[in-house]
Amino acid sequence: MGDTLKIVVLVKHVPDAQFDRHIGPEQRLERSESILSELDEYALEAALQLSEARGGDKAGNQVIALTMGTPDAANALKKALQIGASSGVHVTDDALAGSDAWATSLALAAAIRAIGDVDLVITGMASTDGETSLVPAQLAERLSLPQLTFASSLDVDGRTAVIRRDGDASSDTVEAELPAVVSVTDQINEPRYPNFKGILAAKKKKIATFGIADLGLEPGQVGAAGSLTSVEQADPRPPRTAGTIITDEGDAGLKLVDFLAAQKLI
């Protein structure tokens, strides 16, 4: 295998959090105005840096962007190709609608096996819509790969990957042999933007599309039917409304304390 790396980067197509997001009928998220998840840009950047340090695509490295989602999710792959990924894999099938982490990790693990001979799977720390952080650990469990998660730094030396993981009580150095699953935080790097050259180059890059049958899965194993959790009710939280706003005229600190006292907070 030499020094080159074949890296799969997971990118999710998610509703843009800059707009109001809504949960519609059947407790499902409405997927309009979607983008490549902001937190997965860090995963893509980490993969590109590892590839470029080894001579990039020309030297035989590969950064394959993988998404599971609606037909529209191809837009997340296109963005990843413009930013610099070598190729894309799109898992899409009507049967996948309503998948929870269990079903998502099942389908994504099957796709990673189908891609084959992968050295690294790199993901974001959480999807900005599901927000569970379950998928990376579930992929590691399903693929029997070491898990190096919540990485705020990542180095690969030969066949050894080393991360820093910042916890509340300590900051740990963690290492494992490749192949491995890595999830990265927003502390790890500064993601790049697509440039003109990248946008042009992306037009020639390939996206492979898989349905669940291509991955050896049955409809009942994925989607809402294959999921092991269900959302029974979703209610919008009443939006917070602004309260009293005052302008400091020299005594705002005192008025602030009056407010806390009135609220019985002191």
Binding site: A101, T132, S133, L134, A137, A140, T149, L228
Partner: peptide
């Protein structure tokens, strides 16, 4: 973070749904 990840892997091992 660690609790959720233990939950994640346990979910796969037990075929159990995980709510975080």
């Amino acid at each position: 973070f660690e609790g959720k990840e233990i939950a994640a892997r346990l979910g796969v091992r037990l075929s159990a749904g995980v709510v975080t």
